[in-house]
Design a binder for these strands. Sequence first.
DNA 1: CTAACAATGGAGAACGTTCTACATAATACC
DNA 2: GGTATTATGTAGAACGTTCTCCATTGTTAG
Lengths: 336, 336
Amino acid sequence: MTSGRVTIADVARRAGVSTAAVSKVVRGAYGVSAEMQTKVTQAIEELGYRPHAAARALRGRTYTLGVMLSDTRNPFFPDIIEGITGRLGDTEYQVLLGPGGIEPKTQARMTDAMIDRSMDGLILISPVMTDAELAAIATATPVVVVGRHGGAAAYDAVVDDDVMGAGLVVDHLVGLGHTRIAHITHLERARAQGLPHTVRAEGYRQAMRAHGLADDVLATSFTEEGGFEGARELLARDDRPTAIFAGADIAALGVLRAADEAGLSVPEDLSVAGYDNIGIASLKRISLTSVDQDGHVIGATAAQLLVERIEGRSRSVTSSVSPTLIVRGTTGPPRP
Amino acid sequence: MTSGRVTIADVARRAGVSTAAVSKVVRGAYGVSAEMQTKVTQAIEELGYRPHAAARALRGRTYTLGVMLSDTRNPFFPDIIEGITGRLGDTEYQVLLGPGGIEPKTQARMTDAMIDRSMDGLILISPVMTDAELAAIATATPVVVVGRHGGAAAYDAVVDDDVMGAGLVVDHLVGLGHTRIAHITHLERARAQGLPHTVRAEGYRQAMRAHGLADDVLATSFTEEGGFEGARELLARDDRPTAIFAGADIAALGVLRAADEAGLSVPEDLSVAGYDNIGIASLKRISLTSVDQDGHVIGATAAQLLVERIEGRSRSVTSSVSPTLIVRGTTGPPRP
DNA sequence: CTAACAATGGAGAACGTTCTACATAATACC
DNA sequence: GGTATTATGTAGAACGTTCTCCATTGTTAG
């Protein structure tokens, strides 16, 4: 078991130097001669030494960054994670993901666990805890919050500009000639503020107002079923909308099903747009117009900010990433 | 920072006992009086003490289990992870996920990192490394391998019975009256043996033989594009198949697109079946017949086996989980 | 009443690093 | 040639736990 592990003492013995010297070489610290450098490096290679992160934790860094995921099923997590690991690929940092669940309590348990494992910093993706809890975590360790608008005193934040994203959709639909554009959002029940769906709905309202149009928001849930139910209700109205903007692609898929069942053809009878640009949106069979968040950029930015924080920056930063509209086959001009 | 951390010494001081005694209480070890128990427990609560996992690591357990993910995009990972965390929910163990990437080298880096962080055990999901590398890891720490058939001397394994799954599909299609059933598989290029797609293809061949039918395997890749290309080739043949069984749902979606483009209606002109039962397969708009692996059971079993290993079992176990066929709208009797 | 033993609590040495302080050697300056 | 300065290496004390002895109590047996 652990008996087989090569330690810094083994390396020191092999190279005929002190453990302190080996530690210096490993850390790239000041005060090492070229000769010492080569001697130790060689011994490390020969023995296949790797520093024991847990032992390091007791004194300094662990070179481990934790990413708390609020919902493993969220389809653009992979992009964000790729962005994070990509940005960190050439550093010594390792990334570990913690499935935090969707409950504040389980998320708190996970962040505690990460702190207990002395991770050097945390990236929290769409956390649902209160601002106070968030602030408490941020005093214990450097934190970057992803996907949550608002208050960021003690930590950094990376957000998608959801107001802009919603605006892009509305502008696009208005440009096509639509005037009755409805929005399906997620029913607010968490106490956490600044969650994306709220901001998207607000962005939709702003954009509609800017065009002098009446807004029409229906709150169900961001699931296929939620989209289906919402669309069914909207399509049953006398002056049914000619376009539905769902706040999430998964809900947009439900809208498409409702259109199918109602015998409406897309986009002739009904235009449909989503948000998130999940993988299947691009499948030719679906071809859903959607807002793309560029998870890569979001993840890379979060990683960047976190490393900066760890390395000493104390001023707090909020970075906003601009989304882009991907126009596909589910949106078109309304039937005259 | 760390200065704020409550340590076992603080608890000992508060309770007026030794650190050794506190440690005993925390670990539930032998030799603690009822009075000591309550005194210490109370002090722990008052101070909000949580054991420092990194410090624990140096002596005993870390109560951390690592799960290496080979491909974060794989749509049934969430189920497996839920199965794992669900099974572990009432224990002291915490689960951390490591994105290992799809390259043997990056996966090795991740498993090394997990071992360096002295995790108590590892679950490897569809690892692509060689059997030798796998065995090496298994000597360093308890290991459970998920989704890889074959050799399991030093570690436990949980596999989906892919032979059975492929058989279910073939039996279903033959039962509907199909005789020309083609299979699309993933092009083998990794050196790792026993990967699911190989076994599924073999199961398909066995089942076809059992029915006295000729097999027809085409290797492209498990992507939407791979399914599309494969289907296009198959459908261009003179005696084109009346049913296509894709080894993965994502490829099956490509098959559906190819059918659309060829003007074939599903399932009348072509039956299509997939494997994995990914979330969107159940969307009414897709309604794909598929084989369900029950990721929950797989994950829960893996967690169970790992904990058993950690707690001392040395005999190696391989657990096979039976898949089920979910019949939906993309399969039906062939046109007479 | 004493010897043997069980039950309980505590001292203190690990575990594998980092890092401050110091010792020594080499170089620079006048 | 002596002193100040810089460069290089090492001792050894942390870090927060666990866990193996021991020391001290009671308790039981004879």
